[in-house]
């Protein structure tokens, strides 16, 4: 089955991202396809490559990255909402240069795109599950 996931909260503050990750991992192990994970609201903070948790704790960002959720073209299907991301200072290279900001923090396993990607995930997937606060 094609399953998509919406994550509404950032890492560490809430369990939402951890649960969503465990769910995605289990779904993949059972042979389902994770069509897309869409990060919205503070969920965009799951994509920061500057995240440095203590060594004895899990790295939520790397966990997502290691799932390697990609489409047939090899693009990441860990999608960060652009409006929510810019509002919260989550930038990829292109948005940083567009806004004349030095530096960017988006982890390469993620990509920034529009809200339409969430709707499209709802249309193209058999199921969409929301994880939040």
């Amino acid at each position: 089955m094609k399953i998509s996931i919406q994550v509404n909260e950032g890492p560490y503050q809430h369990q939402a991202s951890d649960t969503a990750y465990q769910f995605a991992k289990a779904a993949i192990e059972k042979g389902h396809e994770i069509f897309r994970v869409f990060f919205y609201h503070d969920g965009v903070n799951n994509a920061s490559r500057f995240t440095l948790p203590p060594q004895d704790d899990r790295n939520v960002i790397n966990q997502w990255a290691e799932l390697g959720i990609k489409n047939a073209d090899g693009e990441p299907e860990l999608v960060v909402c652009i409006a929510a991301a810019l509002r919260r200072g989550m930038l990829d290279e292109s948005e940083a240069s567009k806004n004349d900001i030095n530096g960017n923090n988006l982890h390469p396993a993620f990509r920034i795109s529009g809200l339409g990607q969430l709707i499209e995930a709802g249309i193209k997937s058999d199921r969409l599950v929301v994880f939040g606060d």
Binding site: Y40, H41, A83, A84, G114, L115, G116, L118, I119, E120, I123
Partner: peptide, 13 residues
């Protein structure tokens, strides 16, 4: 407000 933003985008679909 971010829910409303999704709804406005959804209209196009």
């Amino acid at each position: 407000i971010e829910s409303l933003e999704v709804v406005l985008i959804a209209a196009a679909f």
